[in-house]
Design a protein around this nucleic acid. Structure first.
Lengths: 233, 233
DNA sequence: TGCATAATTCTTGTCGACAAAATATATACA
DNA sequence: TGTATATATTTTGTCGACAAGAATTATGCA
């Protein structure tokens, strides 16, 4: 348990908050810290072997991204997944898929596509291996790389946040995620990348929309089945 | 200057960071702290009469929203306005105008429009009074109220951030902003509100787009004229 | 026993201090 | 005089401590 605390003295000055932030962020997105988990500052400070000050700064950052909720003067906990307003999430997700892909078709440079193709290969591997967790993260990385080729930091920022939310959401269901459908996603990705390469903005946008709607429909189907893990609303 | 510091003892526990955050945020958006201004923690702690700890947490929040840039172990300063990638900003702004207005037409409740109309009246007053600063802020408040009637926090959040950026940007030019054109904006607002009320999503979206493009063209014209204040790129 | 109040424990927000980086200044040497 | 090294100063990141609120437990009273 003190594998992290033992880094106490070999840590570079100023890296403290970033370490805590990165680790907690991953644990939240991977549901190792499920929604509603209490966040105890002193416990964290013991775990990471540092004082509460850098811990707190990391928590402020996490709160800024909506990953934790802080009640003033009272406890702070991992934020809930809002199943009631899910359509807001899907609307935003689909729109960001569309617009980032379209902008990528317009503004990408050839060298951008190398990275994108590498990530698409990773995604294909994950699908082939039926590794749902890897699928989730490689899919997010792929689409984020496409978004970055579109070179609009405002859209990329929101999209990144939405994909993270999705990572948390999908993690809820990843057991039921290994049917044959994802294989279609690989082909869809290939078509999207081709449309980007030929700078066909209209086609890229349309394919991205269809792709996004596929994904949303898939998630909604999972949501409807109600075989989700026991996590409070 | 110690009018803020004198609140030392009458301040409620926990309100410190919020006070500092709000004040600094306003000062940055109003260009009282122009881009590039150095942020000195000890100076702020003296000014607000509190220790550096709450100051720092406020700065972390500001950095999270991109309003200040923090070089590790080195100085932190008010973030620059990125004139080179302005088109990214305009793209995002126009899209958020469109989508939030469209969603408002779909999802608003009648009582939402009361608030919207009140803010539109404020905007009309500001235009009538040729008060450019008030125009900027009332216009932002109006469109944000419309966005909130659309009930998608992801879009509202991004839009809010963009409108803030715009507030900072327009503040650069507000002297040259008092020609006759804004009067058209009042009428356009009225049309948009009417379209929302009749739940004509398509019309609302189209009007919002035209409105946004008007505004963007107006800003770009100001940018091109080059008569901007002396602020470093 | 049930409920309201008081005492106690825990957690959070803030503070002052200190040490590591970085910056500025001074000194040495060519 | 100019450059390089050493010293001093400033600024930032972190720490341990403490006090205010909230949560919890204990106590008193009907």
């Amino acid at each position: 348990m003190d594998s992290e605390a033992s880094l106490r003295n070999e840590r570079k000055r100023g890296s403290g908050v970033k370490v805590v932030y990165d680790i907690l962020r991953d644990e939240i997105l991977d549901l190792e810290l499920p929604p509603g988990s209490p966040i105890d500052e002193v416990q964290l400070s013991e775990r990471f072997g540092m004082s509460r000050t850098p811990i707190r700064e990391a928590l402020v950052r996490l709160a800024g991204e909506g990953l934790i909720d802080t009640l003033p003067n009272r406890s702070t906990m991992v934020s809930q997944i809002d199943f009631l307003n899910m359509h807001s999430y899907f609307d935003a997700l689909v729109l960001m898929y569309r617009v980032t892909t379209q902008l990528a078709a317009r503004y990408h440079r050839p060298e951008d596509l190398e990275g994108v193709r590498a990530l698409q290969a990773d995604f294909a591997d994950a699908v082939e291996a039926q590794d749902a967790l890897a699928m989730i993260s490689t899919n997010a990385a792929l689409h984020l790389a496409i978004a970055e080729a579109g070179r609009n930091p405002y859209f990329t920022g929101l999209f990144s946040r939405l994909l993270n939310e999705g990572r948390r959401l999908l993690r809820l269901y990843y057991q039921s995620y290994n049917d044959r459908l994802p294989r279609r996603f690989v082909e869809e990705h290939d078509e999207i990348i081709a449309a980007i390469e030929t700078r066909d903005t209209e086609l890229a946008e349309r394919l991205a929309r269809e792709h996004a709607e596929q994904i949303v429909a898939q998630i909604q189907k999972l949501l409807m089945r109600g075989d989700r893990l026991d996590v409070s609303l």
